[in-house]
C-alpha cells in the first residue's frame, strides 16, 4: 500500500470535523463520483469578523482524500476567510507530513473546496481552472496537462527542455519515455519532427525564436564563458547572492533555500517548507538556476537534495 505518513493515517482513522455544519453559511462542493473523489466543505463564518467558527467535511474518496479534508478543516478553523485562502495545497500536504506524488491531487481538492466555499459565502461564482490528467513524472508529481501546456507555450522540443521548464524528468528519468511520447505528439501538431537523440539543439544551433527565454539565455550564458573566470570563493559568493535574491519569494510561502555544495557545474541546494515535489519548487529552481547563470556567466545545473539525501550525506 501507499507509504502514508503517520499523520495521514491518524487523520484517516480518526477524522476531525466530520459531517455538515448546521446552519452553515458557506458551502463548497468539488469533485464527482466519476473522478473517484468528491468533497463537500461546510463552514460557519462569522459575518462580523469573517472568522471561520466551524468547519465540517463530507468526503467520498481514498485514504489521503479523507485525511486531506480532515487536515484542511483543522487548519482553517479560527482563521479569517482571507487567511484561510492563503492555505495552499502544499500547506495541507505539509500539515500531513507529506503525501505520495500520486496523491497530491487530494490536497488540491481540499484547497479548491475552500475556494468554492468562500466564493459561495461571498455570492461569487467559483470556477475550477485546475486541469487534472495522467501523472507523468512521479519524482516531481507532474501531470500531463502541465507538460503539454508548457511545451505548447514555449515551443519546447526536448526532454531536457521539459525538465528545465517543468522539472518533469529531472529525477530518476523513468518517465522519459512518456515525455518523449508527449513531445512526439506535440511536435507533430506544430509540424515539426521530434528527434529523440539529437544533440541538445539549442547548443548546436543558433538560438531559435522562443517565447520564453530560459533556454536561449542559458545558451547565451553558456556561450559567454565556457571557462569559469572566478575563483571558487568568488563563485560561491555569487551563488549566495543569487540565492539571496530568490529567498524572499520562498519565505513568503514559508519556505527557504540553502546552498549545500558546489561541484564543478552542479549547485546543490536544499529546499525547506515547500516540498521538493511541488511545481512551485520546480519554477523556483529554474528561476534560481537562471539567476546563478547570469551571475557567473556560465552554465550551471541547480540540483535540489531531498531530506533523506541530506541525512545520508550527514548534512
Amino acid at each position: 500500500m501507499w507509504d502514508y505518513s503517520e499523520t495521514v493515517k491518524e487523520h484517516f482513522y480518526n477524522p476531525r470535523n466530520v459531517g455538515a455544519v448546521e446552519d452553515a453559511n458557506a458551502i463548497g462542493d468539488v469533485g464527482s463520483l466519476s473522478c473517484g473523489d468528491a468533497l463537500r466543505l461546510t463552514l460557519k463564518v462569522n459575518p462580523e469578523t469573517e472568522v471561520i467558527e466551524e468547519a465540517g467535511f463530507q468526503t467520498f474518496g481514498c485514504g489521503s482524500a479523507i485525511a486531506s479534508s480532515s487536515a484542511l478543516t483543522e487548519m482553517i478553523k479560527g482563521k479569517k476567510l482571507d487567511e484561510a485562502l492563503e492555505v495552499s495545497n502544499q500547506d495541507i500536504a505539509d500539515y500531513l507530513e507529506g503525501l505520495p506524488p500520486e496523491k497530491m491531487h487530494c490536497s488540491v481538492m481540499g484547497r479548491e473546496a475552500l475556494q468554492a466555499a468562500v466564493a459561495n459565502y461571498r455570492g461569487e461564482v467559483w470556477k475550477d481552472d485546475h486541469e487534472e490528467g495522467a501523472l507523468i513524472c512521479k519524482c516531481f508529481a507532474i501531470e500531463e496537462p502541465l507538460i503539454v501546456d508548457t511545451i505548447k507555450a514555449n515551443k519546447l522540443s526536448s526532454v531536457q527542455d521539459v525538465a528545465n521548464y517543468t522539472k518533469a524528468g529531472a529525477g530518476c528519468s523513468a518517465c522519459h519515455e512518456k515525455i518523449e511520447e508527449i513531445l512526439d505528439r506535440e511536435l507533430k501538431a506544430r509540424g515539426e519532427i521530434f528527434v529523440p537523440n539529437a544533440v541538445r539543439p539549442d547548443l548546436a544551433k543558433e538560438p531559435r525564436t522562443v517565447d520564453a527565454s530560459i533556454t536561449s539565455e542559458m545558451l547565451a550564458a553558456s556561450k559567454k564563458a565556457t571557462k569559469p573566470k572566478f575563483t571558487l570563493v568568488q563563485r560561491i559568493q555569487k551563488i549566495e547572492k543569487a540565492i539571496a535574491e530568490v529567498r524572499p519569494t520562498l519565505q513568503a510561502d514559508r519556505g527557504d533555500v540553502k546552498l549545500i555544495d558546489v561541484q564543478d557545474k552542479t549547485v546543490f541546494v536544499s529546499l525547506t517548507g515547500a516540498c521538493v515535489g511541488c511545481q512551485m519548487a520546480g519554477l523556483t529552481l529554474n528561476g534560481l538556476q537562471q539567476k546563478i547563470m547570469e551571475e557567473l556567466g556560465e552554465f550551471v545545473q541547480v540540483v535540489p537534495l531531498s531530506k533523506r539525501q541530506l541525512e545520508e550525506a550527514g548534512l
Binding site: D29, V30, A38, Q58, F60
Partner: peptide
C-alpha cells in the same frame, strides 16, 4: 463520511443534493 450518503441511505437525486462545480 460520504457526501452522497445521508443517515437513511444514498441521497436521492444526487445531482441536486450534491452538485460540485
Amino acid at each position: 463520511l460520504s457526501p452522497y450518503w445521508s443517515k437513511e441511505g444514498p441521497l436521492k437525486e444526487n445531482a441536486q443534493a450534491f452538485s460540485p462545480t
